[in-house]
């Protein structure tokens, strides 16, 4: 897990100093997605991860920690630090 300070939109410069009126501590989780490191602040399950990366959950094959998932299992598959996820959009062309 990584803690990061996310500066709010009201950040501004004042007399050479950066002033932030609103900031939040966000917990980032690092996973391996399609063989690459990926950090997510929002996704706590596979369905949320698919939404975050813009994948259509009705048209993809997902393997989570080397276990193939069916779409009905996406929401219940919780993500943890270091998990390995493979997401492949199903294609129909010929």
């Amino acid at each position: 897990m990584t803690l990061k300070i996310i500066w709010g939109q009201s950040t501004r410069k004042s007399k050479g100093l950066t002033v932030c009126r609103r900031a939040a501590l966000t917990i980032f989780m690092k996973i391996r997605l399609n063989g690459k490191d990926f950090e997510t602040a929002e996704a706590r399950n596979v369905l949320r991860l698919l939404e975050e990366i813009g994948a259509n959950p009705k048209r993809c094959v997902v393997e989570h920690n080397r276990k193939a998932l069916r779409p009905a299992d996406f929401e219940g598959a919780e993500l943890s630090e270091g998990d390995e996820v493979e997401v492949m959009a199903i294609v129909a062309g010929g």
Binding site: I90, V91, G93, G94
Partner: peptide, 10 residues
Amino acid sequence: MASAQGYVSQ
């Protein structure tokens, strides 16, 4: 079922 799109084969 065999398919392809872009550079992908399935």
